[in-house]
């Protein structure tokens, strides 16, 4: 299940040698197309670990469940802070659920 790329938003990390999603993908799957927009080269191999989604500074990536497994359209959007992460989950009926917690240090 490859991440869906919002080609409007994706700036290919300004055509750097490797975009941040390309740098981080554990499966070596994200890469830049000729027009310098990110895409997943082997959609079948994606583990949807969402590392790329978290890394994208433009918010241009989104993980979607393939239709064969789940209905249209549910969303799960992480937002990364310095030591926090929030998740917004919107199910197919539009129900919104939110989660937030500290993901690094300073729990006291």
């Amino acid at each position: 299940m490859p991440p869906k790329v919002d080609r409007e938003k994706c700036d290919g990390c300004k055509a750097e040698k490797e975009s941040l999603c390309e740098q981080i993908c554990p499966g070596d799957l994200m890469t830049l197309a000729e027009d310098k927009k990110a895409y997943c080269r082997m959609p079948r191999d994606c583990w949807d670990c969402m590392s790329c989604i978290k890394a994208c500074p433009k918010g241009a990536l989104e993980t979607r469940i393939p239709y064969q497994l789940g209905y249209h359209v549910a969303k799960l959007i992480p937002m990364m802070g310095t030591n926090t992460i929030t998740w917004t989950c919107i199910d197919i009926n539009g129900k919104v659920e939110r989660f937030q917690y500290i993901n690094r240090g300073m729990l006291d």
Binding site: M1, D48, C49, M50, T63, R64, I65, L69, G70, Y71, H72, V73, A74, K75, L76, P78, W87, C89, I90, D91, I92, N93, K95, E97, F99, Y101
Partner: peptide, 23 residues
């Protein structure tokens, strides 16, 4: 149930998405 999903988000976030995609 919410705590459970929070745990899932920490390990396998897309499973929470899967549940959402099944409503």
């Amino acid at each position: 149930a919410k705590d459970l999903r929070e745990d899932l988000l920490n390990e396998r976030p897309s499973f929470v998405l899967f549940l959402a995609s099944r409503g």
